[in-house]
């Protein structure tokens, strides 16, 4: 069975094979190591001229990629841990995402920054964070989140080859070893691609279930946990939910409009729970709830969110488990809402 990791690796290989302009730069990329999480394995052997293993210089790597993209190449930057994306924040915000618009629109910056995020591995406060919320709402920057429901490698390949703007591509670490699109036989899955996007939003409902009492929304690895919760809620508590999983976190629709798939689900359920692994305050879920509130001026019956507390993520297993939202947290929250 294929895993998310294998799919991402295939996506990179496909991009390299299909377009000579694709380059990869990052730390510790050379085989046999192939990057700290092995997503880049095999590339340096097959394409030695186009894989540049680099010094530990994240900010410069992002800037170098920006220059390469400005001059017609399609670079991919691997940032070893998403926590270190803070080191490229200036390049991302003030160069990469800006050039397209600030130079009057005649410049393209086709590059992809890929990075693992997330905890549950005991790596401690500086190697476990889910920081993508910092980059949501940066004009000119697309943020995509891999998930296991459809092929994330194909999404990555399209981001590299078909997107003429910059993409911040988030890979939750626990997703890597998840089987791809597995155990979906109980679900009916609808795909909806928001205007201007190419990553589909997936809506999952249990086959034969009565109309949903609540809409769960989550992305990345959290969508896997939400799906498990969705099953248990149905089988153990007879609470039926729909799960809406976006692939694109940013940009959202202009004017504060709610994503169509989410709107369609809420139209029926009128209850919303957004779940994320990032810290609570000003998180992704806050934006989702705000948009839902605007979309339903008459109000929803219930709206809430789960996120990590506004505190550093502890290294200790029991403390980390308690801090990061998991299946049990979702079960408890949903039961309070219906």
């Amino acid at each position: 069975m294929s895993t998310v990791l294998a799919a991402l690796n295939r996506g990179l290989h496909a991009a390299f094979e299909q377009d000579q302009r694709v380059y990869l730069i990052g730390e510790d990329l050379l085989d046999p190591y192939g990057g700290a999480f092995k997503v880049s394995q095999g590339l340096s052997t097959k394409y030695p001229d186009r894989v540049w293993t680099s010094p530990v210089s994240e900010a410069a790597l992002a800037g170098v990629a920006a220059g390469m993209a400005l001059r017609g190449l399609r670079p991919v930057v691997e940032i070893m841990f998403g926590d270190f994306s803070t080191l490229i924040a200036d390049q991302l915000i003030n160069s990469i995402a800006k050039f397209g618009a600030m130079y009057g629109g005649d410049v393209a910056v086709p590059l992809v920054v890929r990075t693992p995020m997330g905890g549950r591995r005991g790596y401690g406060p500086t190697h476990s964070q889910t920081l993508e919320k910092l980059y949501l709402g940066v004009p000119g920057l697309r943020v995509l989140a891999a998930h296991a429901l459809s092929d994330p490698g194909e999404l990555l390949r399209r981001a590299i080859l078909e997107d003429d703007g910059p993409v911040f591509f988030v890979e939750n670490k626990l997703l890597y070893l998840r089987p791809l699109a597995a155990e979906l036989q109980d679900f009916e899955i609808e795909q909806h691609t928001p205007p201007g996007a190419y990553a589909a939003t997936h809506t999952l409902r249990l086959k034969g279930a009565p109309s949903a009492a609540l809409t769960l929304t989550a992305y990345g690895y959290m969508a896997e946990l939400a799906r498990e919760a969705q099953l248990r809620l149905a089988f153990e508590h007879e609470i039926f939910c729909e799960l809406v999983v976006p692939g694109q976190l940013a940009p959202l629709l202009p004017g504060g409009e709610l994503d169509g798939a989410l709107a369609a689900s809420l139209e029926k359920s009128r209850r919303l729970l957004a779940v994320e692994e990032g810290s609570y305050t000003l998180g992704w879920g806050a934006e989702v709830l705000a948009r839902a509130a605007q979309a339903f001026p008459g109000g929803l019956k219930a709206a809430s969110r789960l996120a990590a507390p506004d505190a550093p993520i502890p290294a200790s297993r029991p403390l980390e488990e308690a801090a990061l939202p998991g299946v049990e947290h979702i079960l408890a929250a949903v039961q309070k809402m219906v």
Partner: peptide, 17 residues
């Protein structure tokens, strides 16, 4: 200073091409 890596990347792209 933000232009330094971008200039280097541009030069490297031209070299690669």
């Amino acid at each position: 200073g933000s232009t330094a890596p971008v200039a280097v990347g541009s030069a490297l792209a031209e070299k690669a091409k």
